[in-house]
């Protein structure tokens, strides 16, 4: 009994800080290219299991934020923390380890043209020298998740835009990263395909406990991600339900960028109620 108690308290010790330390934290980050200020004192946190929607006009610093998380760019000043680890001054070699726990979905998918869908999704595992049998089952599992198992032998050039994004998502999810970054994953897609991509993001958030940043400028996505949640019904099927009187989603928040500054941070309901001219124009298009 004693040892059982010990086990529990040890577990609590290791688990609790895990939930408290944010997955991603920006502290007063500044960045300029030549004379243009891209980020001007940006601070925010993404908690565990939370999805942060970043809204803003094109060129407003949204994608830059994501690139900073991955260390593809370095800030001029300020701090960036991943799982409580200050990565601001990490070298490229040190960043390689950090990147192992982050999945990134690029705007157009950014699939490797010279590799098949299978090799694209398996890329990370092949690099790690994982055995082929294990690679194959993992790749199939991931392609099943994005519902693209039939495309396994195809080359990226044979895929439609939406399929490329989904393969991109499958590739990002290999190795079950606990942080996933989406860089405008629905830009230029038809509404049903965009919806599918959002559903994947919702599934990751609600069923896999993934923390994510979802950069977008489409208000439709905001509606899906902030008001629907995924759950599993009695038959084991994943279903999507609307938040309502009884349940309000608290694991999704919105921040809005304008000229490198955060002008709004909070729930989607607050965003829609805001009387800021810029925000209203963004929501209504006029």
């Amino acid at each position: 009994m004693d040892s059982f108690d010990k086990k529990i308290s040890a577990n609590e010790k290791t688990n609790r800080p895990d939930r408290v330390i944010p997955a991603i934290e920006f502290r007063d980050v500044h960045l300029s290219f030549d004379d243009k200020k891209v980020l001007d004192g940006v601070s925010f946190t993404v908690r565990r299991g939370e999805t942060k929607l970043i809204l803003g006009r094109s060129g407003g610093g949204k994608s830059t934020t994501i690139r900073l998380v991955l260390g593809l760019l370095k800030p001029d000043s300020g701090q960036i923390l991943i799982d409580g680890e200050d990565i601001t001054n990490y070298s490229e070699a040190q960043m390689m380890d950090v990147r192992q726990k982050i999945g990134m979905v690029f705007q157009e998918g950014a699939l490797f043209d010279s590799l098949s869908v299978y090799e694209n999704v398996a890329y990370r595992l092949h690099e790690q020298g994982v055995e082929e049998e294990e690679v194959e089952s993992e790749v199939r599992r991931m392609l099943q998740f994005v519902d693209l198992e039939d495309a396994i032998e195809k080359m990226p050039s044979e895929l439609s835009g939406g399929m490329r994004r989904r393969v991109g998502i499958a590739r990002a999810l290999v190795g079950d990263p606990k942080i996933v970054l989406f860089d405008e994953p629905t830009a230029g897609l038809d509404p049903p395909t965009a919806r599918t991509i959002c559903e994947l993001a919702i599934k990751l958030r609600d069923l896999e406990d993934v923390s994510s940043i979802f950069v977008t400028h489409e208000m439709q996505n905001l509606g899906y991600l902030c008001s629907e949640y995924a759950t599993v019904d009695n038959d084991g099927q994943v279903i999507f339900e609307q938040e309502g009187e009884k349940l309000c989603l608290i694991n999704t928040e919105v921040i809005m960028f304008r000229d490198g500054k955060i002008i709004f941070s909070g729930k989607d309901e607050e965003l829609r109620r805001s009387d800021d001219r810029f925000i209203q124009r963004f929501i209504n298009g006029r």
Partner: peptide, 17 residues
């Protein structure tokens, strides 16, 4: 073309130099 289609970034993001 790998740079402009973000494949180089993707490679770095997947942990390859």
């Amino acid at each position: 073309s790998m740079v402009v289609s973000q494949q180089i970034d993707a490679m770095r993001a997947l942990g390859t130099d």
